[in-house]
Design a protein around this nucleic acid. Sequence first.
DNA 1: CTTAGTGTATCATTATATTAATACACCAAT
DNA 2: ATTGGTGTATTAATATAATGATACACTAAG
Lengths: 131, 131
Amino acid sequence: MTTSSMVNLFSLNTSSGIPIYRQLIDQIKQAIRMDLLKPGEQLPSVRNLASALQINPMTISKAFAQLELEGVLIRKRGIGMLVTEQEKGEALTPAIELPLVEFIQNARSENLDDESIMTLVQQYLSIHTKG
Amino acid sequence: MTTSSMVNLFSLNTSSGIPIYRQLIDQIKQAIRMDLLKPGEQLPSVRNLASALQINPMTISKAFAQLELEGVLIRKRGIGMLVTEQEKGEALTPAIELPLVEFIQNARSENLDDESIMTLVQQYLSIHTKG
DNA sequence: CTTAGTGTATCATTATATTAATACACCAAT
DNA sequence: ATTGGTGTATTAATATAATGATACACTAAG
């Protein structure tokens, strides 16, 4: 995908109450999950994005700083931002992995601790018997 | 449990960055999940709690307002606050329950046994650390 | 070295969330 | 009705988070 057409991946809602930088983070992650962004691909520059989305370059930069922390992409001054080469080496299928990751993220965002999460899984394993 | 001994359920950390009212919410929910608080039981009054924990009564009240919204307890002026009669599983939000059920069903359809599923969850809990 | 592209550290501003002070509302028992 | 207990609406103060302006740093190419 060209960097200019990548801009269309983003759809910001400034009145949703969700911070812009968080919307960016989520939408980039989603694009990667959906294979719209592939490892090694270059993202639009902070200024291009900022101009296209009508926001401050620093807001882009901060969002991408977070994504770099999470290992999703790499930033280089003078160069740009690249999607990381991901280890997808695990034998897990997306049908298992995606809902698992989503479950864990949502559970944590509702402040369940790890022990509670494990208990929950146990409960559901006993409820949803194989049939 | 007596309302006075319930105070010991709470352990607030004012320098953790996590808001007090959120710590209260989480600790109450956890106590209910662990059966330390049972349906019908009465909680300490906002003033007792506030005094014991050295915080403002309104902070307690706001935490409990949230819990009432979530159906965890009921507040009555002049009376006090009671733990709701309910089944524990009902407090789960769709954001947690849906991916959990999907995960378990898909894992089973790929012939993972329960032990493997639990191990998987444990692995992902350690990989997808909070943040 | 200059230019024109990249990202960013620092700080100021603005917006939002959290906590607290006060006065009030409700209930049960006297 | 009074007392002494319950929770709370309103508002103000404070703390934290998010955004933005500016000046700067890094890189590749001419």
